[in-house]
Design a protein around this nucleic acid. Structure first.
Lengths: 333, 333
DNA sequence: TCACTATGGGAAAAGGTTTTCTCATGTCGA
DNA sequence: TCGACATGAGAAAACCTTTTCCCATAGTGA
């Protein structure tokens, strides 16, 4: 009688046994349709909702998954999280979010806590596709899915197709008539940087310049300085490794009096909306579909939790190009 | 025998009964110290961890809280979440994150799911202090704490002290010798905008201009245009309503050849690090201590869940000033 | 030797739900 | 009228842990 209404209260109110009440609600067992309907009606009248703890104890399914991340700013984690949540809420599944920074001890604490709470599965995500979280998720008693972070070879891993995304951007620049392309991107030790650069080179030609640097606006500035001041041929189309760099590039071009998109078209990467939309002009950029990626990861971990067996391996999800004004207006809009 | 090791396995391994095993682990009951130590040792050897579901069923504590938010980009939610998580992980509590956008139906679904899972409490957070979430949290069977979103009058609500933060910024501008101050901020229908503006006016003097607009960089640009082109006295210190506006202001000043911080000192609000640090020069800004706010909210909801009774009401936590270069270098650094 | 107490440890109930098994009643065909 | 069978619904076990109550055994004092 602790305030919460249990199935015993329901049984008493309906004048049936606890087992009949349970069967009525779950469409189990045999019983008169009238009885079933009456019990369901009374259940909703008295506001009965089954205790998920008790149910989970029995079914060894807690309808709970854990999301582990080391992405502090949440730039990548939030869309992934949104996708997971959206996909799983229909199945009655809730998500534990655990930010573990890069602290192995903290990671272990959170993983243990999740296991204690009998999560149905764990999704690992992060800020970098070629690094793994500082915690070992192999051999856990629950399924683990990796999304936008490195997984073990025999695990299921989702990631964005960097090469395809970079190809999309480069092809677009060519399609709108730009011929002198350049790529300004992040540190070469990022796998995605290398993949994007390779795809760019394939599409733009081997002698199109590729400038590696860091993930910051100021590097965008500096890269423009190099491209404009070192006497080489100046580009009319720049594909940037992320939106921050693109922002720096655009600001630097404006400061030099170079028109965007008139003289130079610029494309970013990430579609970090709050930045891409505020850039002047708003940024055409590659969207990694992280929400969709989260959705797939969520459904996958649920499948695994339900016992379905799937082929392990890396699954690359396609990127899409979001056309704004930094390339000269929406062509398809 | 489903792979997971239960207390029965432990009891069998130790040659004692289940109840003895339980008592040994929880330092309950009377037993030989040697027995207790032996059981604990065996428990850790075989990797026994109590099933939180079963434990929760008994204690009606799930060691779980729900965090409800409508802040899509997570700019405010993430620090709050980090604070909550940090404060509660020590207590073995995990956090469900539920992003409900502004959808009442979705909100209800998530709240129901959390209640089904017997959360010990709910923390509501958002993106705006004077709006409440699109879901009614009154009369729930678990404690509710509001953090950075509007709560009911008889609830416990945490928020940042906007007036104090604005006072901090304005006083700092005066302290570094600026005398012609202006305030460029967001829409006047935000309570925090009004509070900050009032505090600014008190400190800067009643005829210091206050420009209301929207939360965007482009408004920052436009505001500078107005201040510089309408023939009035030009400011030498601008306090902005958020970091995005400050960014726009700084960019606009640079385009006009006005030096920051030489000619004009600029202060932002929010300390949205990824933006504030990338601004050139890096932005001096007011930090609302959202992480601390989350920590307090987490501890509060835990207290309430444990039955402690606290005085309801609004609790304002102080802001702090983060000094970077947009005001002329760190004075205390 | 007896009654009593302290000590160490076990049995069982409780928490809320689901599922399997069992039972009672009624209906039908032979 | 009897057996077979379908139908409706209840009893009990199971999930795992904690806690209360109880029972042996040994030790102590009279």
């Amino acid at each position: 009688m602790s305030g919460r209404v249990t199935i015993r209260d329901l049984a008493r109110a309906a004048g049936v046994s606890v087992s009949t009440a349970s069967k009525a609600l779950n469409d189990n067992g045999r019983m008169a349709d009238e009885t079933r309907a009456r019990i369901k009606r009374i259940a909703s009248e008295i506001g009965f909702r089954p205790n998920a703890l008790a149910r989970g104890l029995l079914s060894s399914r807690s309808f709970t998954v854990g999301l582990l991340t080391n992405d502090t700013y949440g730039r990548f984690t939030l869309p992934v999280m949104a996708g997971i949540s959206e996909a799983l809420v229909d199945h009655g599944v809730s998500v534990f979010l655990c930010a573990i920074e890069d602290d192995p001890a903290l990671g272990k604490i959170h993983v243990d806590a999740m296991l204690d709470k009998q999560v149905d599965g764990i999704i690992a995500t992060g800020k970098r596709v070629d690094r793994s979280l500082p915690v070992d998720l192999a051999g856990l008693p629950v399924p683990v899915v990796y999304a936008f972070t490195a997984g073990t070879p025999d695990s299921v891993t989702f990631t964005a197709d960097d090469a395809q995304g970079a190809g999309l951007a480069t092809a677009w620049l060519r399609e709108i008539g730009r011929r002198r392309l350049a790529h300004v991107t992040g540190p070469e030790d990022f796998a995605s940087v290398r993949e994007r650069a390779f795809a760019f080179a394939s599409e733009a030609g081997g002698n199109a310049p590729i400038l590696y640097g860091v993930w910051s606006e100021s590097w965008g500035h500096e890269a423009v300085a190099r491209l404009w001041d070192d006497g080489g041929e100046r580009p009319d189309g720049i594909f940037c490794g992320n939106d921050q760099i693109a922002r720096g590039v655009i600001d630097a071009l404006r400061e030099r009096g170079v028109k965007v998109p008139g003289d130079v078209a610029v494309i970013g990467f990430d579609n970090w909306e709050i930045l891409a939309q505020q850039t002047r002009p708003p940024l055409t950029t590659v969207d990694m579909n992280l929400k969709e990626l989260g959705r797939e990861a969520g459904l996958m971990v649920l499948s695994l939790a339900e016992g379905r067996t799937v082929e392990p391996g890396l699954r690359k999800l396609p990127c899409k190009l979001v056309v704004r004004q930094s390339c000269g207006g929406a062509r398809y809009a």
